[in-house]
């Protein structure tokens, strides 16, 4: 075998491997269309605004925004290369990474979306200790709202089943309906679903008690009242193919987060256009959500502390271990 032939075979093998990868979708995306995904709610508003950014428009002419409803759907889209970039809860991002999906975390931008609503008739709700003897509803067992709630309950010296009753529903909508039907004393809900429930309870002339779980976390742990709950991930091959484009997106996301917090009325209008939730739901949800864009590498210490605390309750939550350095977008790009 002469060197020329060897080089040719190497090249052929390399081409075959490349061809078998879904990379071409993403490469094509950066020169043409970029597919971005987000769950319903404020992450969707942030990414929609980022995609309207003039810099993004100039760098990536064709863009699309999709909704993902379950992490499995997102995983499939990422694995097939149908989506290059997505907003996700941080635990879903860690889980995808630990299960071998080639992604990197670009940033964390949602630092407080969890809270509780309490029926006024069930007594005051100013601290999780008030929940003793109560019936609490939570959407999805083992998800972030559940684990944050259980962490806080444990910190407060309470025990589920011994001191309080917890029932799980299969979606936030079901929890909202149970709360509105007054079949729960309190409900753990993220925004904007929490505001939707609060407004619906208001139709019945009720003013539900509100408890911010981030503040409870700060009170019970002595740490800050901000939790790195959601951010944006992208496919690793997108990063490798066009780091400058990602840099443009990262900056645009930062501007979009600032825009949502500084222009809540306009952001609410955009949210209502994008989703079935009404404008007043977003108007209530925005001031109740902590939003700050922090590049992933800077957020790493807080993210690791947060994920470690929750993984103690359920290791599966993050896919068995903390993600390694490869999970975080390198500083050079951020």
């Amino acid at each position: 075998m002469n060197p020329d032939r060897r080089d040719f075979l190497k090249l052929a093998a390399g081409a075959a491997v490349l061809a078998s990868l879904p990379l071409q979708h993403c490469l094509a995306a950066m020169t043409g269309k970029l597919s971005v995904a987000a769950p319903l709610g404020l992450p969707q508003v942030i990414l929609a605004r980022a995609l309207q950014d003039p810099d993004v428009n100039a760098r990536i002419p064709e863009r699309e925004l999709r909704n993902w409803r379950t992490p499995d759907q997102l995983r499939a889209w990422l694995a097939r290369g149908e989506v290059g970039l997505s907003a996700t809860p941080t635990n879903v991002a860690a889980n995808l990474y630990n299960r071998g999906v080639p992604i990197v975390l670009m940033n964390v931008n949602i630092w407080g979306t969890l809270g509780m609503l309490g029926l006024p008739a069930s007594g005051p709700l100013t601290a999780v200790e008030n929940l003793a003897g109560k019936h609490i509803g939570i959407p999805w067992r083992g998800d972030m709202p559940d684990l944050v709630f259980r962490f806080l309950i444990r910190k407060a010296g309470l025990e589920v089943d011994r001191d309080l009753r917890v029932t799980y529903q299969s979606s936030p909508l079901e929890t909202v309906q149970m709360f509105v039907a007054q079949r729960l004393d309190a409900a753990v809900l993220p925004e904007p679903v929490r505001t939707a429930a609060r407004l619906q309870a208001g139709q019945f002339g009720q003013k539900p008690e509100e408890l911010d779980l981030q503040e409870e976390w700060g009170r019970l742990t002595g740490q800050g009242a901000a939790l790195p709950q959601a951010g944006v991930i992208c496919r690793r091959d997108l990063l490798e193919a066009d780091p400058q484009a990602l840099e443009v997106m990262q900056s645009a996301i930062g501007r979009a987060v600032s825009w949502v917090t500084s222009e809540p009325a306009k952001a609410a209008t955009l949210g209502a256009e994008l989703s079935p939730l009404a404008e007043n739901v977003y108007q209530g949800a925005i001031p109740r959500t902590q939003m700050v864009m922090m590049p992933a590498s800077k957020a790493r210490p807080e993210l690791e502390a947060f994920l470690t605390a929750l993984a103690e309750l359920s290791p599966d939550f993050i896919g068995g271990r903390l993600p390694d350095t490869g999970f975080y977008l390198p500083d050079a790009v951020s």
Binding site: E174, T175, V176, Q177, M178, Q182, R183, Q200
Partner: peptide, 14 residues
């Protein structure tokens, strides 16, 4: 009955 027995479907079925 829906609010009593199936409150998770309150708004839709109730």
């Amino acid at each position: 009955l829906v609010p009593m027995l199936w409150p998770e479907y309150y708004l839709l079925a109730g």
